[in-house]
Amino acid sequence: MGALHSSCLFLGVSNASSVQPVISIERTVFYTEKAAGMYSPLAYAAAQALVEVPYIAAQTLSYGIITYFMIGFERTIRKFLLYLVFTFLSFTYFTFYGMMAVGLTPTQHMAAIISSASYSLWNLFSGFLIPKSYIPGWWIWFYYICPVAWTLRGLISSQLTDVETIIVTEGFKGSVKEYLDLHYGFNSEMIGISAVVLIGFSLLFSGAFMASIRFLNFQRR
Score class of each variant (00 low, 15 high):
Y63H: 12
F69M: 10
A36S: 09
A47H: 07
T32G: 15
A47I: 05
R27H: 03
G64F: 01
R27V: 00
M70S: 14
T60Y: 01
T60A: 04
A57Q: 05
S62G: 15
E33W: 08
G37K: 05
S40K: 12
G37L: 09
A49L: 05
Y39R: 15
A46L: 11
R27W: 02
Y31P: 01
V29I: 13
A36Y: 06
T67I: 15
R27C: 02
A45Y: 01
A35Q: 07
T60G: 00
I56S: 06
A35G: 07
Y55I: 15
A47V: 04
T67R: 06
A45V: 01
S40G: 13
T28K: 14
F30K: 02
A36T: 05
V53Q: 03
Y31R: 06
A46T: 09
R27Q: 08
Y31S: 07
E33G: 08
A58W: 12
M70R: 13
A36P: 02
S62H: 12
E33Y: 09
Y44L: 05
T67K: 02
L42A: 10
K34D: 04
A58T: 11
A46V: 05
P41F: 05
Y68N: 05
E52T: 11
M38Y: 12
T60I: 03
G72K: 07
G37Q: 02
A35S: 10
Y63V: 07
M70H: 08
I65K: 09
G37M: 07
E26H: 08
Y55N: 12
F30E: 04
Q48W: 01
P41K: 02
M70Y: 13
T32V: 11
V29L: 15
G64P: 01
Y31K: 05
F30G: 00
V51K: 14
G64T: 02
M38A: 10
L61F: 15
A57E: 08
T32P: 00
K34F: 07
S62E: 13
V51H: 09
Y63W: 12
A49D: 00
A58Y: 13
P41D: 06
Y39T: 06
L50K: 11
R27I: 00
G72S: 01
I71V: 13
A35V: 09
Y68Q: 11
Q59M: 14
T28P: 00
Y55M: 15
V53L: 14
T67L: 14
G64D: 03
A47F: 04
P54A: 10
R27M: 03
Q59F: 07
I71Q: 10
I71A: 08
Y63L: 13
Q48N: 12
L42T: 13
A45L: 03
A46E: 02
I66P: 03
E52V: 06
I66M: 12
S62R: 11
I56H: 01
L50E: 03
G72V: 03
A45N: 00
A57K: 01
I56K: 02
Q48M: 10
M70E: 07
I66L: 14
S62P: 03
M38T: 08
V51D: 11
F30Q: 04
Y68D: 09
Y63K: 07
A36D: 05
I65H: 13
